[in-house]
């Protein structure tokens, strides 16, 4: 019996140690965001605040200077939001439609089409950078939010199609046959029968797309400059600038605000994300 108790203690001990390792960065950012620069410079980034400085948030949000623009991270945050919402919604809808036609309306060459689209998931960004630059230039979308939305929609379709198609193949074929005999067409079946079955996978694709696009850096920094950059690019600009005179308190506040949307999405939807991911998306 005591051996069993020892084993349980070892399990909880190990889990707690790992939990501490995972939580350190979050704790560091949260604590530093309410510390003063002098306080941090005097000790280290790991420590409790000697005095609480709440002004860091307001300052980095609206008046901190990044690359000579003293607007805080606010405009970049809104840029990211204006990019992530349309890109997530559109790529998810198109992915659902693609997945639906690939999984349930088999046609000649459908596996080839699916194979090519899935390749897009694995294609490294660096293969696509220059072509995207040319496409954006020709469409006049260079240095615009719309340009970034376009990129994320088209690249996102690969992921959303993969997820949705793998989920939809498990819908019984008889269901579709019954609907066809009932007289429902392509769109009515999608709208009335397939979509109502989709919430588990749509949650996965929305969370995946939202976090992926929000956190994306390479395209943001390559295809937009100055005030049109998303928040990830602004964070890098901010830390590059700060390296001369470190201001970890304000930077922590910026990091926390920039990470907040995805953390919140994950905190509320993470449970469904894992469930959906393992139920259909990863096979």
């Amino acid at each position: 019996m005591s051996e069993r108790l020892l084993a349980r203690a070892a399990i909880y001990g190990a889990l707690t140690l790992f939990a501490a390792f995972y939580l350190v960065p979050l704790a560091v950012v949260m604590l530093n965001s309410v510390r003063s620069t002098e306080d941090i410079n005097h000790s280290s980034v790991i420590g409790l605040p000697s005095v609480y400085v709440w002004g860091n948030f307001a300052h980095t949000w609206s008046s901190y200077c990044i690359a000579e623009h003293c607007t805080g991270i606010q405009p970049y945050f809104w840029n990211s939001l204006r990019m992530v919402i349309p890109a997530t919604v559109i790529s998810t809808l198109l992915g659902a439609l693609n997945g639906y036609s690939l999984a349930l309306w088999r046609f000649r060459g459908d596996t080839l089409v699916f194979g090519i689209i899935t390749l897009g998931v694995f294609l490294p960004e660096q293969m696509k950078l220059v072509p995207w630059a040319i496409v954006l230039r020709d469409l006049g979308l260079f240095n615009t939010i719309s340009g970034l939305v376009l990129i994320h929609v088209i690249q996102g379709i690969s992921f959303t199609t993969l997820f949705c198609r793998n989920y939809y193949v498990s819908i019984p074929a008889d269901l579709l046959k019954a609907a066809r005999i009932d007289g429902a067409g392509f769109f009515r079946i999608f709208w009335r029968i397939v979509l109502p079955l989709s919430p588990p996978i749509l949650i996965v694709t929305v969370i995946w797309q939202f976090t992926g696009i929000w956190n994306e850096f390479l395209y943001g920094v390559t295809f937009s400059t100055g005030e049109n950059q998303p928040v990830t690019a602004a964070l890098i600009a901010l830390s590059a600038q700060i390296s001369q005179a470190p201001q970890y308190g304000q930077q922590s506040a910026a990091v926390l605000m920039a990470a907040a949307p995805t953390l919140l999405v994950y905190l509320f939807g993470g449970r469904y994300f894992v469930r959906g991911l393992t139920s259909g998306a990863v096979k």
Binding site: N215, F217, A259, L267
Partner: peptide
Amino acid sequence: TIFLYPIAVSFVV
């Protein structure tokens, strides 16, 4: 939740 939250954090952060 503790073990998984890092995937929600960007590489930049």
